[in-house]
Amino acid sequence: MRTFETAQAPHRPPARSLRSVMLLVCAALLPGTLVQAVMLGSGVIVQVLLCTTFALLVEAVMLRLRGQPLSRFLFDGSALVTAWLFALCIPPLAPWWIAATGMLAAIGMAKQAFGGLGRNPFNPAMVGYVLVLLCWPLEVSRWGATPGDWVPGVVDSVRAVITGAFPGGWDAVTGATPLTVEHELMARGMTLPEIQADARITGSPHPASWSALAFALGGLALCALRVVDWRTPLSVIGGIVLLATPPWILDGDLNASPLHHLLSGGLVLAAFFIASDPVSGAGTARGRWLFGFGFAALVLVFRAWGPHPDGIAFAILLMNGLAPLIDRYTAPRRFGQGR
């Protein structure tokens, strides 16, 4: 007679692990990140590394404080994703303490203080970003290069990040994103064709558009691998198209085209990588449609009337707050309860 250890069914090899899901997300972020690095300088990579370091540090300290096993949680990959997304939101030459406070807020407050992985009601990267945006609006909006400009190298980037001072001769172009310029000029009553002529944003497409395409590529791969539910990005993009088209047709001089909305700011990144965060988003299939659509609507509202040029982070956090309610009212109809 041979004896065996008993175990619970099912007796199947486990699905791909949480860590591999997180690493897949990071891999999908890589093309967009590289494009951004080519356009804006190696500061992009420097920020990713810096944020990751701070994120792991804060995570380790918080796990220790909460008495949780480091071995199980520190390298689950979730802190890496948060750090990476946050790094992509801040300018490549932002001083180091932006990354530090951002990660403290994101990992320490938004994630670990709420119970760690899987328990955060709000997207940690967005909480961190909103905090630094509200505290240091200037440092978080100095985006630097526009196409054709000189792009800072690794040494210059590191020096700028450490000292907080821009490389010599670069202050003149402490550039704004097209979205910022538009927001500013439209507030003064200019029309879009007039704005297009502004020296600061000629020579488009702006680098943001190229990286948006690269992020979309990575995001589509995640949808194909079913890491991301396709409903979320589709409902975000569809929502933008659906809501931005009528005003654009009515008056193209005052209202940007849907394509312009999609390719500017971090919308594509948000659609594929941030709105699709399962922990803080809606959990049901119908809820995900609602979540994405609501997010798109809020982004358009914030862009049109908000005080900030882009409202992605605020829109995400608002929708995060609504997610439990959405889930409650969109539970699928059970088998046998009619179709």
Partner: peptide, 19 residues
């Protein structure tokens, strides 16, 4: 086993359409 991240895979495959 790790905490649930509410990815929704279980709901996707559930033949009784539960969560």
């Amino acid at each position: 086993d790790m905490p649930c991240i509410r990815c929704g895979e279980c709901a996707r495959v559930c033949p009784s359409r539960l969560l």
